[in-house]
Simulated scan of single mutants.
Amino acid sequence: MSHKELQRVSAAAMVALLLVSLALVGCASELSGESYLYVAVPLTGDMASRGQEIAGGVRLRADEVNRAGGILGKRVVVRTLDDGGDGDTAVEAAQQVSAAVRKGEPVLGVVGHYNSGATGPALDKVYKDLDIVVVTPGSSNATLTQKGYTRFFRVVSTDDIQGPVDARKVLSLGWKRIAVLHTDNLYATGLASAFTDELKRRGVEPIVDIEMKYNNVGAYLRELQGNVDKTLALSPDGIFFAGDYPEGIPLLESLRTAGYQGGFMTGDSVMEYEFIDTLGSKAEGAFISNIQPEMAAAATESWKSAYRSLEKRSPGMDSITGYAAAQVLLEGIKQANTLRGAAVADSLRKLELKTPVGDWSADAKGDMRVRKIYLFQVRGGVFEQVGEER
């Protein structure tokens, strides 16, 4: 190669390198600053594992969006808030979001809260006055979308669908003497009521309805044996429990230890892998309904790998709902091309999106248009799906 040819090749290489550098600089300059996606979930207390799973799913979706160029030219930064699964603490968390909005910070919206008893007060006292969208990854109490809030959405089904499905299931199993036990939070009382109403509609009256403490495991455990004794004295052939896994696990443990071999059914907030890990063979045969598909079956292997790479741990049951909630919210902002909550909400009502929890679209109230209930039974140490209803 001659000296002149070498010069031409070198010049061409320099131009190519310069173009690549400019392209990289251009991509970086497109992300001019940060925008903030809040995640308000229980990060401490009895329900902390659920909150951590949700936050991990949100972070994964934010990471994917940032790699693809961010949202409205800004990098998505996830800010987590601990609501402790408690209504008062949830309001305090929501007030931190409100403060950020008042300061003029670019707030994308909120993924939260997990518990219906936390979401309700936060909506009533704070979010209703903010022009931002809130997408819950887990709150299923039906009344939340019956209050006229136009910027609130869900990525899960609701108790008024789940309760009747559960009631029909236990009746199909031949249960006649049915005991209903539940904790005293909004989620559990709503699910228990929907379950009981369907039983009564079909001519069956529960033999007992016992309400127990929520979010106070110490008090719950002190009263547990008495509640178990009271229930078993009535010789039920089936027990339905509405509550969360910190209460559901010791309940079934106590029932089996006392010699109860009858049927047991519970809802989505007990469907945690810890339920099987802790109870072992005592969990066998238990039926569980869920307002979302099981993570292990619904998520792809590449999705699970990406989650582990980012979070340095395996995804949990609610990692997919956190991801889906963030996916829905960020796609709504992208389609609306603005952070104004009213406009984002309008775009969400026109949106059809594939998510890890299934095909998502919303009705006028913010509920999913197609609300499925997934039925599982513990078999061989795993949650085996045994049905699906709408």
Rank of each mutant, 00 (worst) to 15 (best):
S2R: 03
E5W: 07
Q7Y: 14
V9E: 12
A11I: 12
A13C: 14
A16Q: 05
L19G: 01
A23C: 03
G26D: 14
E34G: 13
Y36L: 10
V39I: 09
A40P: 08
V41G: 02
P42C: 10
T44Y: 11
G45N: 02
A48T: 01
G51P: 08
G56S: 06
R59S: 13
R61E: 11
A62W: 05
D63E: 15
V65K: 02
N66V: 11
G73I: 11
V77F: 13
V77L: 14
V78R: 05
R79I: 15
G84Q: 05
G85Q: 02
D86E: 13
V91P: 02
V97Y: 02
S98E: 06
A99N: 00
R102S: 04
E105W: 01
V111R: 05
H113N: 09
H113F: 09
Y114M: 07
A118S: 14
G120R: 15
A122H: 08
Y127V: 01
V135E: 01
P137Y: 06
P137H: 08
G138W: 03
G138L: 06
T145F: 13
K147P: 06
G148M: 09
Y149N: 10
T150C: 15
R151H: 09
V156K: 11
A167Y: 03
K169N: 12
L171T: 12
K176D: 09
K176R: 07
I178G: 05
A179G: 06
V180Q: 06
L181P: 00
D184G: 12
A188F: 03
A188M: 04
T189L: 05
T196G: 10
E198Q: 10
L199G: 03
L199E: 01
K200Y: 01
V204C: 05
I207N: 11
D209I: 13
E211V: 13
V217M: 05
L221G: 04
N227K: 08
L232H: 03
S235W: 07
S235H: 09
P236L: 05
F240I: 12
F241A: 03
A242N: 10
A242W: 12
A242E: 12
A242V: 11
D244T: 07
P246H: 03
E247V: 02
E247S: 03
L251Q: 05
L251Y: 04
E253R: 12
G267T: 08
D268V: 05
V270P: 00
E274W: 06
I276R: 00
I276S: 00
S281T: 02
A286V: 10
F287Q: 07
M295G: 06
M295N: 09
S309N: 15
E311Y: 15
K312P: 13
M317K: 08
S319M: 03
I320Q: 08
T321P: 08
G322L: 03
A324G: 04
A324V: 01
V328N: 00
I333L: 03
I333S: 01
N337T: 07
T338E: 04
T338N: 06
A343S: 07
A345V: 06
A345P: 05
W360Y: 14
K365L: 14
K365N: 15
R371H: 09
I373W: 11
Y374G: 14
R379K: 14
E384Q: 15
E384T: 15
R390A: 04
